[in-house]
Computed example of a mutant assay.
Amino acid sequence: MANTGRDRQAEMTTTERLVTERPERRTTAPRGRGASGARRSLAPGRNATMAGLLAPSIILLVAINAYPLVFAIGQSLHDGGITGAGDFVGLENYATALQDPAFWNAAWFTLIFTVASVGISWVIGMTFALVLRSDFPGRSMFRVLLLLPWVVPVVVATTSWNFLLATPSSPIPTLFRTLGFGDVQFLADPTWAMVTVIVFKIWGSFPFMMLMMNAALQSVDHSVEEAALIDGATWWQKLRHVILPIIARPIYISWVLAAIFTVNDFPTIYLLTGGGPVGATNTLVVFAYRLVFQDFRTGYGVAVAFLITIVIVAVSVFFFRRINRAAMAN
């Protein structure tokens, strides 16, 4: 009985202790909130300190990137050459470019070169990415071989293609004559030169598209594909209505990157054809280069370069909007 009384007394003291401790805990809660409020009040000071520490690096990066931009804008508003800025002409260089037939010829071929190279290389890269999803003997070696056109330096690749195509006695023209196609001049005929540089660009670009699409296809859940097949969808319907909408964002990103790379691609054209024959393969980048470093019309050439930049920015904004729409749809 004595033990029972002691146990009850211990339980009562424990209960009283819990009751007395609960108000204390309730009273300490506002203290905690007050401490967090004090920490929040210290946040602006800490942010200012961090901003002050980062400011020198940010200012240096902005200065490094802003100075060439501002200097180039100033050059595009003058009619000088490499040795001097020349007289101020305002927007005359831009107006001259928009009225120059050579500029529009280069712009037209740049458009054909970009659209054909990006579109066809994406189709080929997507096809190989779908093939590489399945397991078959020698898949790793096949993937490595497909990456070789992208890994090989441009100088080596263009030199090899010149050896294969440049002269009538080169291997490919000789093969065409043997097959009865006549004397095909791949780099001397304007039409064939355009086709040759586009094929060369596709050959060097599809591995990039293949890598992008291969990475994008990794995010597609196989259960979704199986559900589509169970519902009776064909292979094409599954690709069009299931796989492509899921990987829409990587597709648009790959198109933007490939378009930027293609428009700014100087070595492919310059090393393979030099912009010829008779300017048939002259892109805007090569056209601007010739204006600055061969004709010594720096202001006009820089103005052309800025027009290229404006077009690239406009295309990028268009595709980034499509990327945001795809993200909202998913």
Results as ranks from 00 to 15, higher is better:
P190Q: 13
S169E: 04
S170M: 06
W192R: 03
T178Y: 09
L165R: 02
S160Q: 11
S140L: 03
G182N: 07
P171D: 11
R177N: 06
F176I: 04
M194N: 08
T191I: 03
S140Y: 07
T174H: 00
P173V: 06
W150T: 11
T196N: 03
K201M: 14
P153T: 15
F200L: 09
P153W: 13
L148N: 01
P149A: 09
D183A: 13
L146E: 09
V195K: 05
T167N: 03
V154A: 04
I202D: 02
T196P: 01
T191M: 01
A166R: 13
P168Y: 00
T178D: 08
L145H: 09
T167W: 04
T191D: 07
V144W: 12
P190Y: 10
L187S: 13
F186N: 00
G182T: 09
I198C: 14
V144A: 15
S140Q: 06
V197W: 08
P173S: 01
F176H: 02
F181W: 15
V151N: 04
P153Q: 15
F181K: 09
M194D: 00
P190D: 12
Q185V: 09
P149V: 12
V199C: 10
T178R: 04
L145T: 04
S169H: 07
I198R: 10
P153N: 15
V156F: 13
W161H: 02
R177A: 13
R143V: 14
L145V: 03
V155W: 06
F176C: 08
I202L: 12
P173W: 08
A193Y: 10
L175E: 00
R177E: 15
M141D: 11
I198M: 10
P190L: 02
R143F: 11
S140M: 03
T174N: 05
F176Y: 00
Q185D: 15
V197P: 11
R177C: 01
D183E: 14
T158H: 00
V154D: 05
G180F: 06
S160N: 11
P171Y: 13
V156R: 09
F200G: 13
T167S: 09
W150M: 13
L148V: 12
W192Y: 14
M194K: 12
A193D: 13
P153I: 14
S170N: 03
N162E: 04
D189F: 11
I202R: 06
K201H: 05
F176Q: 03
V152N: 02
A188T: 15
P171I: 14
D189N: 15
L148E: 02
P171C: 14
S169N: 00
L165K: 00
L187F: 05
T178V: 09
L165C: 01
V144M: 15
W150E: 12
A157D: 02
M141S: 14
P173C: 02
F142S: 09
L145W: 01
L164Y: 01
L147K: 06
D189Q: 14
A157P: 07
P171F: 12
V144K: 12
A193M: 07
R177Q: 13
K201I: 07
V197F: 05
S140C: 02
F181N: 05
M194Y: 07
F186Q: 02
R143C: 08
F142V: 12
R143A: 15
L146Y: 04
D183K: 05
F181G: 01
V156G: 10
A166L: 13
R177M: 08
L147H: 11
V155R: 09
L165H: 00
